[in-house]
């Protein structure tokens, strides 16, 4: 029998790894990879809550489906921006992209 806490620990570990990746990487594509990892951790959490706390309502799983939809849209747009960035600057290093920083 899997305790609810173990599933939550797993998603917490994955989310923290993703947070570290977002903060510490320079490559824009690597940051996107880490964001996908964090969204997956959130999905694990939502599914676990649905299964253990309210299996008759299924609302958490519906929410996870919408998160996957929004993640796909976000990733497509972000990759288009990254490709554009690479074409104009021939680099995807986020440290060098500080045009909008004051």
């Amino acid at each position: 029998m899997i305790e609810l806490e173990y599933v939550l620990f797993l998603s917490a570990v994955l989310f923290s790894l993703g947070l570290f990746g977002v903060l510490a990487r320079r490559n824009a594509v690597m940051i996107l990879l880490a964001i996908e990892l964090m969204l997956n951790a959130v999905n694990i959490n939502l599914v676990a809550f649905t299964v253990y706390l309210s299996p008759d309502l299924l609302v958490g799983i519906i929410f996870a489906i919408f998160i996957i939809t929004v993640a796909a849209a976000e990733l497509a747009l972000a990759l288009a921006i990254v490709l554009r960035l690479y074409r104009t600057r021939s680099s995807v290093n986020v440290d060098e992209v500080n045009l909008m920083r004051w």
Binding site: L19, L23, A24, R25, R26
Partner: peptide, 15 residues
């Protein structure tokens, strides 16, 4: 895939 200067603070925040 180099890290930027936020590696140590990032590790701290994650922990």
């Amino acid at each position: 895939n180099p890290s930027n200067r936020l590696k140590i603070p990032g590790m701290f925040m994650g922990a």
